[in-house]
Design a protein around this nucleic acid. Sequence first.
RNA 1: GUCCCCAUCGUCCAGAGGCCUAGGACGUGGCCCUUUCAAGGCUAAAACCCGGGUUCGAAUCCCGGUGGGGACGCCA
Length: 482
Amino acid sequence: MPPRVRFAPSPTGYLHVGGARTALFNWLYARRHGGTFILRIEDTDAERSSDDMVSGILSSMKWLGLTWDEGPGVEGPHLPYFQSQRLPKYRAAADRLVASGHAYYCYCSPDDLAARRQAAALEDPVRMYDRACHALPAEEVARREAAGHPRATRFLVPQGTTSFTDLVRGHIEFAHEHIEDFVILRSDGHPTYHLSVVVDDGEMEVTEVVRGDDHISNTPKQVLLYEALGTPVPAFAHVPLILGPDKKRLSKRHGATAVGDYERQDYLPEAMINFLALLGWSPGGNQEVFSRDELIARFALDGISGGNAVFNVEKLDWFNQQHIMRLSAADILRRLRPAIVGAGLWRDTYLTSESAWIARVVDLLKPRARKLHDIVPALTAFVSDEVVYDEAAVAKHMRPDGVRDHLAAWLEAVRALPALEPVATEAALRALAVDRGIKAGILIHATRVAVTGQAVSPGIFEVLELVGQARVVSRLTACLPA
RNA sequence: GUCCCCAUCGUCCAGAGGCCUAGGACGUGGCCCUUUCAAGGCUAAAACCCGGGUUCGAAUCCCGGUGGGGACGCCA
């Protein structure tokens, strides 16, 4: 039976990189095994959820390429995929639990509870619910109900222990005395997380629950609910958390934590995916750079490591560069087109008569780009008549005595060349340097500044060829005294 | 405090009793290539938390300690 897994974010914030990695693991698992990846929005906390957050999360998921098979927009057999629209299901489940004696009504107000907890805090910092309302006499219950007293529904935790086999950690066991009678239905009729997640995972026939480590201690409560509801218990896989450099749970104070932040910082989604996949998971072997398909082909839950992982931006940067280098020139052009247009450097001929030429230019620029958009300004010297001269570069390479005389001689040599084929051009330049008794570097640096305006560029002979003889001649000429 | 999880270079991982003189990657230093900047190649420094067991043999298994993290809500 193909697996059914889900990612169930709460729209109380942006898609966090930790959440993104959890989503990624689920997605990889589904894709690896030909299963179904469900996206469900856990918006039962009406206070803190918002539509903007929902659309932000969906947008980040799409950016990462984590496509879902069931969920918002694509729908599916278990509609709706927003928990706030599934309220009757949770109430029905709560009613069933009360009817079967697995749950009971609690009339204690949150304020009461807080006060009681506070009072008890002196000797015991954490105090579990005292089960006061479970022992209420029938007449008292009737009286409160008649008076319309608000009530929550609590699960009656039985005696004993609950255990489950975690797919990444193995056997985990909890004694019930450490689990309080948790609320499953709030007094406003909304379910709490424990109820809604169990009802939905059950109904949606989720087979493996892959989620963050922080849910381990919630798991026994949920197992208890599955059992009380008579629903098959799914398998669980708890993945470690992502930490900041100080080893604390990654948060805003560590810098960018939202996937959207990385999108805005011009990281490639494939780099982000690669980086996140290898944070806490290993495919084995020494390969580091993986395409999406390669990750899918190798993904396995048992390769997930147990320890928390520190988010290391420098390695993300490296992955980004590696993936830029693996992109085809045509792909880069397609992604960068809006920016190139914006810079006034676009020509439709890049797609037709000039496609081979522009591809060579892009390929030359690729390994030098940290971020994709670094390529746009670097295009200028190749595609524009305008040359922006960097003053420091001019001062360093054009001003020294004699440089312009050498350059004048070089200009003549360039004019005499039938074409600017790199090997021949280099031979000509070196021959001239020998002739004039100077180091080739003098000519090379001056030529670079004259042609590109900058002190750094790709290999100058490739640059000359791609800029083209006519422009090289005119730029060299422009740099000589009139 | 209680419960749970985790523990190999600064960081991310490999290692599932002898193959470990502990391997790879990022980052850092050096060298090579070279006209600059990248990319690439080579190389160096850098780790098995501590203590007990088990075993002929332990990074690997067990126990304890320590350390880190997480959870203890009518948040998810």
